[in-house]
Design a protein around this nucleic acid. Structure first.
Lengths: 223, 223
DNA sequence: CGGAATCCCGGTGGATACTG
DNA sequence: CAGTATCCACCGGGATTCCG
């Protein structure tokens, strides 16, 4: 145990991988990108990860200053893990890798796990700030039992957990459909036709939201 | 062998990690970011990687369309591996992780491997396009026996292998010093004083180059 | 010589049972 | 609920051998 396996290379990438390169580690960080989570939350959302591994990874990441234990909701009653500022700096890296990996998500298979928050992540990864509208508006997403929204203001777009105050558009769908749309395997139009996606609100806003996410709506006259 | 271990999650990040998340894989891609490399080049620059693992990883990555075999220099005489466009899209991800990992490169230890191209990578990772000068100029770096340069033109900076045509600045150093400077563990001034870094050319250009890389020169009156 | 298959064996990691 | 302990399959590191 004293002999932690490392690459022993004097290089930023190798050193980074020595910290977050081992199996499951980046997926744990992914879960924490959506906010603090408890041990059992992580275990539930990472099927296949053993309890010993999770404990070991968490301890290791705490030691490296990537995550920390926080008490959420009251005085020490509920412990949880959260990203430190150093861990938070992994967000663009993880979003970038998630976008890259979209290329490789195939058809949904029976044995694949799906979680709403991964759709959330997909949307955040697809956000293209350069296409952010000048308008101030927000789009709400209800994915299974999770709700989040994209808030556009001052030409900046951000993905946030929770409901929007006055969304100009609301999308309701399931996690699998959401990931498929995010990965470009399914157009919003196709999803609507098959009843897997329900859109409410201003249809112009829907178009703006699709543009913001770099999505083809599935309607003709695009690319 | 038919049962490749995967995360089985319907998520871009998990799918991406199923492709490049295994041990050594991203380091192999890192080497190819600097241009095509042959099997033995890779083996030489990745100490600790076994021949079987390298062969397996290469085959796997070729199968996934991340890399491909190319014949460099003549007709099929010299085979080499190169990134495909898909693999090339990993560049920003790897540079981001390399920058993040800089935080964790400690003191150089005797057993650590160092390569000039990793310093090259470090510099590329530190390039901040927003600070690119309006001037058109280039800075040359001689790191051990490797030479590369940063070319600034049209407000864009890029890191390129090989010598510059008419560099306004030339830096000579060793790979370890270079990585340390890149990681902020050493200021250029400190490196010069200790004789590990030699700078030639226009000293104003040196300052501009440092700014481009987000480096403190080590001189007073900064931060 | 470049590229890769075949061994062996130690360490990682997956599954389950158990404990504070 | 939050981990710890234990078992064992299998991945990965090293050397050797093989093929072209």
């Amino acid at each position: 145990m004293a002999t932690k396996r490392t690459y022993q290379q004097y290089c930023g990438l190798a050193s980074g991988l020595d910290v977050v390169g081992e199996r499951w580690t980046l997926l744990i960080v992914r879960e924490l990108l959506m906010g603090p989570a408890r041990y059992s939350d992580l275990l539930a959302n990472l099927p296949g990860l053993g309890t010993n591994l999770l404990a070991e990874r968490l301890k290791f990441l705490v030691g490296k200053g990537v995550i920390e234990q926080v008490d959420v909701r009251g005085t020490g009653a509920q412990l949880a893990y959260a990203l430190t500022p150093v861990g938070e700096e992994l967000r663009p890296v993880i979003l970038g890798l998630a976008r890259w990996g979209m290329e490789f998500v195939g058809e949904l298979r029976a044995e694949d796990a799906v979680r709403p928050q991964w759709g959330f992540l997909a949307v955040e990864a697809m956000l293209d700030q350069r296409r952010a509208s000048d308008l101030t508006e927000s789009y709400e997403f209800q994915v299974d039992d999770e709700v989040f929204h994209i808030a556009v203001a001052d030409g900046r777009a951000s993905a946030v957990k929770g409901a929007a105050v006055e969304p100009v558009m609301r999308a309701k769908t399931d996690a699998a459909t959401f990931v498929q749309i995010g990965g470009g395997r399914l157009t919003p139009l196709m999803a609507m036709v098959t009843g897997r996606l329900v859109l409410e609100g201003d249809m112009d806003a829907v178009v703006r939201c699709c543009e913001l996410l770099g999505l083809e709506t599935g309607a003709p006259a695009s690319r």
